[in-house]
């Protein structure tokens, strides 16, 4: 466990010191500022309500889970695998008394922590912006649902990250991984529209699964089914990604 802990601390230090993750988080926060400005302009210019204090964080979430959050997750995941592979710096860790499984798991855990930190920061700042600038329409129930929606959005994002990690272990160059990831993302989005009856199986549709928690008649069956689909695909992607990482020659 101490070895895994060391590997995890190293991965977090690298994420932090590289400053890419920090820039990603700052850009995410910029979305809140731009979104809030847009709502203020709409309200004062056209006399429309825009969004209430609790609706604003949900508006932010619906935008970021389909745009910048997958994008930054891809950048961090690609950098952690393809980036280190191309610079040969992966060897620095690989020749220490730590198994490849622990290195792989530590890298994935650091990516998960990055996604969680971004989601939490977005939640806190969008709530603050919502309460300060928008008319107060908050109830405890809607507040709890908002927090929950942010937290559950972590799961589909982790599955997506595992998919990108698999690609990063399949292709050598980071740029190829990035473009293939975007292509796959778009194809899955289109497939989700064309074959809407099967869309719940696709990871791009699962990004919006937080909506299930907002329905008044809590659809437990659907939530469990979606969760199990995500868990299954997550386990498969993790295993396939690790298999390739373990077989790799450095």
């Amino acid at each position: 466990m101490a070895v895994f802990q060391a590997a995890l601390v190293n991965e977090i230090e690298k994420l932090y010191k590289k400053k890419k993750a920090l820039v990603a988080i700052l850009l995410s926060l910029a979305v809140i500022v731009i979104g809030q400005l847009a709502i203020v302009v709409v309200r004062s210019g056209f006399g429309l309500r825009g969004a209430g204090s609790v609706e604003f964080p949900m508006l932010v979430l619906s935008v970021v889970v389909n745009t910048i959050l997958p994008l930054f997750t891809a950048l961090v995941a690609i950098d952690s695998f393809s980036g280190e592979l191309s610079q040969n710096s992966m060897r620095i860790t690989l020749t220490r008394p730590v198994s490849r499984f622990k290195i792989f798991t530590a890298k994935i855990t650091a990516i998960v922590l990055f996604i969680l930190a971004t989601l939490l920061l977005l939640l806190i700042f969008s709530m603050l912006a919502g309460f300060i600038f928008n008319t107060n329409s908050a109830t405890w129930d809607s507040l709890v649902r908002t927090v929950f929606s942010y937290l559950v959005s972590l799961f589909p994002m982790v599955v997506l990250a595992l998919g990108i990690v698999l690609l990063a272990n399949l292709f050598k160059s980071g740029i190829s991984v990035f473009f293939v990831s975007i292509l796959v993302f778009i194809v899955l989005k289109v497939l989700g529209v064309v074959f809407s009856q099967y869309s719940s199986l696709l990871m791009t549709t699962q990004l919006d699964w937080y909506n299930l928690f907002l329905v008044n008649s809590f659809p437990l069956g659907k939530i469990v089914r979606q969760f199990l689909i995500m868990l299954g695909s997550g386990i498969m992607l993790f295993t396939a990604g690790f298999y390739l990482f373990d077989k790799k020659e450095f």
Binding site: Q87, N88, S89, I92, R96
Partner: peptide, 18 residues
Amino acid sequence: EAYPYLSAFDNLKQLARY
């Protein structure tokens, strides 16, 4: 090889944790 964005000390610190 060394991580270019970490100082010489931090590079060794990464290894020291093991």
